[in-house]
Amino acid sequence: MSQNPQNLLQVRDLKVHFPMPKKFGQERAVVKAVDGIDLDIRAGETLGLVGESGCGKSTLGRAILQLIRPTEGSVTFEGQELTTLWKQRFGLFGVWSPNEMMRRKRQDMQMIFQDPFSSLNPRMTVEDIVGEPLKNYGILSGKALREKVQDLLQTVGMDPRYIRRYPHEFSGGQCQRIGIARALALNPKIIVADEPISALDVSIQAQILNLLEKLQDEFNLTYIFIAHDLAAVRHISDRVAVMYLGKVVEISDQETIIKNPKHPYTKALISAIPLPDPEQEKNRKHIVLEGDVPSPINPPSGCSFHTRCPIAEDRCKRELPILRNLNENHRVSCHLV
């Protein structure tokens, strides 16, 4: 695929493999958390990213922002290749760390982390946590910094008087909002929001979704929105990518994904959404996926979904399907579509 100037971000054949503990006398196994992903993300859009727990969503998000170093592949942000902006300290065996250029780029790229509790430093006050990026980049200090932090708290629906408190004094949902305020602090261009609303009750979810949309309109923000709640994803996303075992299996606009999914995995996902109505919910037919979730250590041969696919044929066990265009904005990787 070629470069397209409209894209804020381009991801090509991205791989992240984690080594497993080595067993004596055997090859070292790896977890193929992200295993060859191509994505184009346009400025100002929201790309929803859904898929089973463990399929590699967080790892993909982190690798795009270069919070972990990809094993292979390329990520281009505003025309700049990011994967080369790492330097190895202390010689050949030293740790990889980002260089100065990356530091500057990171100002425009923020992450809202999945785990609201452990992503906040327990020894820092809310003021320090939310204000840290502004201070690090030398943007604000003193009274102006405090006012900005109070503003940000208010924006995410929290009482600005809480700035002196520590994370353990907050509930799960409150911690998640502190993380959101921190990500907003630098006015980034792109935010990878990793399950930003999963710890929130529905009313505050709605507040945060509305807020993210408002900020997007105001600042032309771009989001990668990771979530397992398809209704919320549908609500906020322009396009949705469905991941399975380290790969994107279907991508299209949100309407098509919900109403006219093509991949059997997407179909199962959509049928499994619980409905907030006890009568409807109890009488509803779910497509239950047979079989266990396969392991990213030894993914199945051919199409990695074939072990659980209700319509799999012989060929699916042998041939790896590629993500191909059904039409201009709908891509699926399934032999049988």
């Binding site: 009313s203 505050i204 979810q205 709605a206 979704l209 949309e213 398809l230 549908r234």
Partner: peptide, 16 residues
């Protein structure tokens, strides 16, 4: 305030 699958994109939710 629950988002629904039948919602259209861009429809503002009704938070409290």
């Amino acid at each position: 305030s629950i988002p629904k699958l039948t919602d259209v994109k861009g429809k503002s939710l009704d938070p409290i």
